[in-house]
Nucleic acid binder design. Structure first.
Lengths: 135, 135
DNA sequence: ACTTTCCCCATCTTTTTAGTAGAGATTAAA
DNA sequence: TTTAATCTCTACTAAAAAGATGGGGAAAGT
């Protein structure tokens, strides 16, 4: 029922990049310092966000990262799914990460968890990084 | 964002006991077989449910477990909290299990997670085992 | 006494989490 | 063209959590 550090870090990093959207490339080092995220760990996180198509980067002196689309086009849902997998409380009610699980035996429990899944995923789907940087 | 096996097993076990509420004492063995839960693991789970006051038990021949109150007085929330801790997606928005966490820096994110927490906890608080055994 | 059944604790294996290390590739600039 | 900056990639590792298992003890019924 809990987000990993990795998801939290990823969100904070994307917030940082959103705050700087439209400006120059942002360095890992900078994000790491501003958001207090271990640098080498952050590297990996940014890399996977990049591989997922959320970020663009450039190497070498003056290099860094930037969002590959505006903050308003990136939802919290996709980030959390990338880092942590299913948003659903049990995987047997997950849309993208279905796995059988013991509670499938109980219809009512499934219904309850499906309801929660829908709420959470709808909420996270609708919230974008543009929403998170509003003052 | 996910329930542990332990929580799932605990719910199934309580469903079994709810289905048999008012009848005789129920044996671990029976629950284990009906719900396909490893017996020795189930022992531990039932024991902690007992320590938390949800179950009563009797040892020896003819012994077993029973609910210590009617199914309608036991919420899913208390069971999941017992087994897995916080219902909140991040502990910094948890009511009963607060812990500092990196995302506290972002007000909007906190708001979002608080909203989710409220929904989930309200939902699980309101659903009882009586609801889960309705046909 | 003997059997059944819960009680309790220790142990163990596997997976996940959270992070570190270090070499390599690319780019800009001196 | 060398050097410094910066991302890229793979591997490794340590600690914690998850998911059990094992074995003996205590109580209760027969």
């Amino acid at each position: 029922m809990k987000l990993s550090m990795k998801s939290e870090y990823a969100c904070l990093a994307l917030i940082d990049l959103s705050e700087n959207y439209g400006k120059d490339l942002i360095k890992i080092e900078g994000i790491s310092k501003r958001k207090k995220i271990p640098k080498k760990y952050l590297e990996q996180i940014l890399l996977s966000l990049k591989r997922a198509g959320l970020l663009k980067s450039k190497r070498g002196a003056g290099g860094g990262y930037m969002l590959s689309k505006p903050p308003s086009k990136i939802s919290i849902a996709e980030v959390v799914r990338l880092m942590d997998g299913a948003l659903a409380p049990v995987e047997s009610v997950s849309k993208y990460f279905y796995e059988p699980s013991p509670i499938e035996k109980n219809k009512q429990l499934m219904g309850l968890f499906r309801n929660i899944r829908d709420y959470v995923s709808n909420k996270l789907e609708k919230t974008t990084f543009a929403d998170l940087i509003k003052k």
